[in-house]
Computed example of a mutant assay.
Amino acid sequence: MSRRSAIALIVRSRKALLDDADERPSAEAERLRAAAADLTRLLFDVRAGRVSAFELNQPARMRVVVSAD
């Protein structure tokens, strides 16, 4: 997957988690916000080129390999 597509995927996944957190009880919402924070760090790492492969569990489990630009 291109770096641009990988970043877009992470952004969509992060937004979905945060949207879902707004509708959940506080304990579950905190767990979802923590997962969104992990995606934020992943986003920065992918954008900077420090990560070239990763796994996402939301919305479905998938392994992403970032191709060279």
Rank of each mutant, 00 (worst) to 15 (best):
M1Q: 05
M1A: 12
S2I: 07
S2M: 06
R3K: 14
R3C: 04
R3I: 05
R4V: 00
R4P: 02
R4K: 13
R4I: 03
S5I: 05
S5A: 06
A6Y: 09
A6D: 02
I7S: 02
I7F: 00
A8R: 04
L9V: 09
L9W: 11
I10M: 06
S13C: 14
R14N: 11
R14M: 14
R14W: 03
K15W: 08
L17M: 13
L18Q: 12
D20N: 11
D20R: 15
D20I: 00
A21K: 03
A21W: 08
D22Y: 02
D22M: 09
D22R: 15
E23Q: 13
E23N: 14
R24S: 10
R24E: 12
R24I: 07
R24P: 01
S26R: 12
E28L: 02
A29N: 13
A29P: 00
R31Q: 13
R33N: 04
R33Y: 01
A34H: 01
A34I: 00
A34Q: 00
A35V: 03
A35Y: 01
A36W: 10
A37T: 04
R41C: 01
R41D: 13
L42G: 03
L42V: 09
L42C: 04
F44W: 04
F44H: 14
F44C: 03
F44L: 02
F44K: 13
D45Q: 13
V46C: 03
V46I: 14
V46N: 01
R47I: 00
A48D: 15
A48C: 03
A48W: 01
A48S: 15
G49F: 08
R50D: 08
R50S: 15
R50N: 06
V51G: 01
V51H: 06
V51D: 00
V51I: 13
F54Q: 10
E55W: 07
E55Y: 10
E55K: 12
E55I: 09
L56R: 02
L56A: 07
L56C: 12
N57K: 00
N57L: 01
Q58N: 08
Q58W: 07
P59D: 13
A60K: 12
A60Q: 05
A60N: 06
R63W: 09
R63V: 03
R63P: 09
R63F: 05
V64S: 07
V64M: 08
V65T: 10
V66Y: 02
V66C: 02
S67A: 08
A68N: 01
A68M: 00
